[in-house]
Computed example of a mutant assay.
Amino acid sequence: MGTPLGDFIRAKRDSIQPQSLGLPDRGRRRSPGLRRQDLASWADISVEYLTRIEQGRDRNPSPTVVNALADALRLDHSERNHLRYLAKITGDECAVHIRPVPPSRRVRPTVLDTLRLLEPGIAIVANRLGDVLAHTSSFRLVTGGTGLLDPAHPNLNRYVFTDPRARAFFVDWDDVADEQTFDLWQAPSLENLEWLTGELSPIAGSEFTHRLKRHVVPRRGILRLNHPAGHQLRLRRETLELPAEAQQLVVFLPADDQTAEVVDQLQRQSHGRLRSIS
């Protein structure tokens, strides 16, 4: 049985063209990317040891080995942080039995007060599992008619992977899907991650599980939305971490004048109040 750490290393190895590292082209091979032998040589470890890590038979590589693999794979800053995080949780999986549990949905009162101060801006409080825990009235205006906020407990991952309307709403659906699955690895706890993936995998299918194992570090560019009224919105995102609760305050800012005008028009047409979802 594989591990998140092994999956990530294997995915990155498969994505690297040997020529980009100055290695010779060895012709057609059954597997794409960099050979295990080449990566092991660059990281100064044995092929057997690398195989054990990738296959999940060794779940506790030392920090020195993890850093050597990061160097050999030419990982950028975000990817290095992700590799170290996966090494940590892979080791934790060996130490404890994971009992899947849902995360707390409580939002600290002072965070809700902060959200109110952001009205009439577009903002939400969410966790890494994609639960939308609270939002401003303008967020409801921007997402109105898309189905995102229809459930009693809205969740971005469920919406993206199980609601057909999501593919029409998110112009760059593939990028959003990569972002959502990547963020799951930063779930409040392993128990929470197991809870959501265990619930979502059977209904979301391979589209979800394949992305979850790819570990693509998202670039998080402009978020483009097709509003049901016929407008396309372009939004920049500013994310403020709330580490004590493992939550995030995300503010969506118009990326151009046209988007700002559409949002202003939506706000004039409907005046709402903050809604906190518990």
Score class of each variant (00 low, 15 high):
residue 3 T to C: 03
residue 7 D to S: 10
residue 12 K to D: 07
residue 12 K to W: 03
residue 15 S to N: 08
residue 22 G to T: 06
residue 26 R to M: 13
residue 27 G to T: 04
residue 37 Q to N: 10
residue 45 I to T: 10
residue 46 S to R: 05
residue 50 L to T: 02
residue 54 E to H: 07
residue 54 E to T: 06
residue 56 G to N: 05
residue 57 R to F: 10
residue 68 A to P: 08
residue 69 L to F: 07
residue 73 L to E: 03
residue 77 H to Q: 13
residue 82 H to W: 06
residue 83 L to T: 03
residue 88 K to S: 09
residue 94 C to Q: 14
residue 102 P to Q: 11
residue 105 R to P: 03
residue 111 V to S: 02
residue 115 L to K: 00
residue 115 L to P: 06
residue 119 E to H: 03
residue 119 E to K: 00
residue 121 G to F: 04
residue 123 A to F: 07
residue 126 A to Q: 13
residue 135 H to G: 11
residue 138 S to W: 09
residue 142 V to P: 11
residue 154 P to R: 13
residue 170 F to Q: 05
residue 188 P to I: 01
residue 188 P to L: 12
residue 189 S to M: 02
residue 192 N to T: 08
residue 195 W to G: 09
residue 195 W to D: 12
residue 199 E to L: 14
residue 205 G to K: 01
residue 212 L to K: 01
residue 214 R to S: 15
residue 215 H to E: 03
residue 215 H to T: 09
residue 216 V to Q: 15
residue 219 R to F: 07
residue 222 I to A: 07
residue 224 R to S: 11
residue 226 N to E: 12
residue 237 R to Q: 14
residue 238 E to G: 06
residue 242 L to T: 04
residue 247 Q to E: 00
residue 254 P to S: 04
residue 263 V to L: 07
residue 263 V to P: 11
residue 276 S to I: 01
